[in-house]
Each structure stands twice: as structure tokens, then as C-alpha cells.
Design a protein around this nucleic acid. Structure first.
Lengths: 176, 176
DNA sequence: ATTGAAACGACCAGGCG
DNA sequence: CGCCTGGTCGTTTCAAT
């Protein structure tokens, strides 16, 4: 399983062939364990190694598989404290100053959002002291009016995007 | 890079040797790209292939590296709609009914949280219709009093836990 | 932790359904 | 056109230092 991500060219998702059942099966497996050999992966989806290899290569080239990464344990890397920070800004978010927060490895996600807030950030820190430091840094940032912090007491589920879709949640305008 | 996750035994993070600078370097690289060969990885951290291999094996056995996965593109798998749902419950969350939501592949995260909410869920769906279906399902769940939904309009950053720690956010009680 | 060697898996070419 | 078979080559991984 040594297809290098950087060898791939990112393409638009539109000009790409729709995913068939086997593609979704492959993605389902790879989203949970990307360490399988192509032979093993082939066995699981009912294809030969070169065939799966070809499909995986295509899925990467098409940008369906963005990258392959190691998932680290927050506690083990001394970041037992996970929190979501809602940020209210004066203008409409996305200023250069706010995007600079990307440089903090503690910040894992930044989204602009609807609702009674402007920006949602997911952060993982060493301690409450570090969280305070991050919030202080936030308040020093131009355009930040206020924050609301939700500390995760325990995490019951945390996984990456799954290719499968629930039948009952499926977009089915044809059913009417 | 084909060390099988399932070959590893999960150990407690405590009874484990602390991470040295090279370990963190390895984790930093692998958290961004786990497709590198051990030879390449060795070059980056200044070690030979078997030496890195040994360390990576240990990091997996110790549970520092939880798993290695393919990151899928939400839009490409027909789930362009990302949202955070705050759930207010009557009792204290974590009921069996709520944990059953794990079966929905649309649900990526579930945390109990502090703040004016009980549960925070991260969900990724096909459409607003599917989101509505998921919320309907939520309201049908016993113990759910209400929800507040924050739809992500655009995602500016989304990555997995980083091993590095910002110097200025570092826990430094010795500095006083 | 390194080197050297063996086993294994990735991946190319060519041919079939 | 996509899949399979066979072969080459790079990589993982073991043993000894």
C-alpha cells in the first residue's frame, strides 16, 4: 500500500465517474484501516490485487481519497483536553489574522457556521492552562468579539468521513 | 508501510516510555502522510529504515498511533453538508439509545460536553433533507429535549491531532 | 541503531472476457 | 473497458553486529 499521495493530481470531483458499489466498499475499508495490502483489500471486495490497486489509484487521483494519515491518540501525545470554541467576530470571519490560527497545532478545525456564532473551532490542548492561553490569543486577535467554549468531557465516537449512507436518510426525491 | 494495526496490542498510555524528539518528529510526519516508505521516513528523521520501523511498531503497540486511515473528501462521497448538532437531554447523556446513533455513518463524532449543552455531535450528510431526517431521528430518541444545529458553510481547516505543541501554549508551571 | 539478506507486496506488461 | 495472470522490482522486516 505504497501509492504516494503526492504523485496524484487533484481533480474536480464533478468531472469524475460516479462511485460504484465496489468503490464504496473499498472506501469503507480504507477509511477504517489503510494498512491492508492490496491483496487483502482485493479479497474483501472480491477483486484481484492489481484491479483494486488501479481503483485506489483512481480514487486518489480524483480526490475522493484526500490523503492517508496516522490517527494519534490525544491523551498519548499529552493533549487530553478537547474543546469546541465558538467565536463571534465583528466582520464576517475568515480574516487573515484568524486564519493564522492554523499555525497552532492545537487547532484542528476551523469552520464558518450558521447559527448564533460565526466561527467554530475544534482545539486539542495539553491543559486548561494551555486552553486559557489559546483563548487569550484569540481575544488578542482583531475582529474577535467573544467566544463560547464547550469542553469535551468524554468522547464516545470520533471517526473520519464514512462512504456509506443510511438508507433512511438517503436523499430520495423520487420517492415523493 | 504495511504494519498491520490489528497485530498490535493496545496498552495504556501511562505505562509507556515518554516520547522523545524523534518520536514526535515521526508522528508529525505520519499524521500528515502515512504513505511514506520507512526508508523515506528514516531520511526525514535521521534514522535508518529498520530503526524507524521499530519505533513506529512501538508507537502503534503503545496506542499512540491509534490507526492508519484514508481521509475521504466529503463532497466526493456525496456528503457536502457538514454540521455540528448540540443536543440537550433530560438525564445525563450517554444512554444506549443515543449511542445507537453510532450506527449512522453520517455521525462522525459524539462528545459529552460542558456549557449550555449536553452532547455535541458532528455529522456529515448528503443534503438538507438528510439532515432533517437525522434531526427527526434525534427527536424520536428518548431523552432528547432539544437540539441546536450549526451548519458549516465552509471549512478552512480540518486535520487530525498534531503531535507538536506551541511553545507559548505549553504547560509551564515551572515558569510561574 | 546499523548493515545485509530474505520474504513479501506493489505495480508494470500483456492477454482475456 | 475493466479485470486477471505472471514477472520484476522496491520495500518491509529479520538476524547478526
Amino acid at each position: 500500500m505504497a501509492v504516494k499521495d503526492q504523485d496524484m493530481v487533484r481533480k474536480k470531483a464533478d468531472d469524475t465517474r460516479p462511485l460504484d458499489r465496489i468503490d464504496r466498499k473499498i472506501l469503507g475499508v480504507l477509511a477504517q484501516d489503510a494498512t491492508l495490502s492490496f491483496a487483502d483489500l482485493g479479497t474483501r471486495v472480491g477483486l484481484s490485487a492489481p484491479a483494486v490497486h488501479e481503483r485506489v489509484k483512481r480514487l486518489k487521483a480524483d480526490g475522493v481519497i484526500k490523503r492517508t494519515v496516522a490517527i494519534l491518540d490525544g491523551a498519548a501525545i499529552s493533549k487530553p483536553l478537547l474543546a469546541f470554541v465558538h467565536v463571534d467576530t465583528t466582520g464576517w470571519g475568515k480574516t487573515k489574522a484568524l486564519m493564522a490560527l492554523t499555525d497552532f497545532p492545537e487547532v484542528e478545525e476551523i469552520h464558518s457556521a450558521t447559527g448564533d456564532t460565526c466561527l467554530i473551532m475544534k482545539v486539542r490542548v495539553t491543559s486548561s492552562v494551555a486552553l486559557e492561553g489559546l483563548l487569550a490569543r484569540l481575544y488578542d486577535t482583531e475582529g474577535v468579539r467573544g467566544t463560547r467554549t464547550y469542553v469535551a468531557l468524554s468522547t464516545h465516537l470520533e471517526r473520519s468521513p464514512q462512504a456509506e449512507v443510511s438508507a433512511i436518510l438517503e436523499d430520495a426525491p423520487h420517492i415523493r
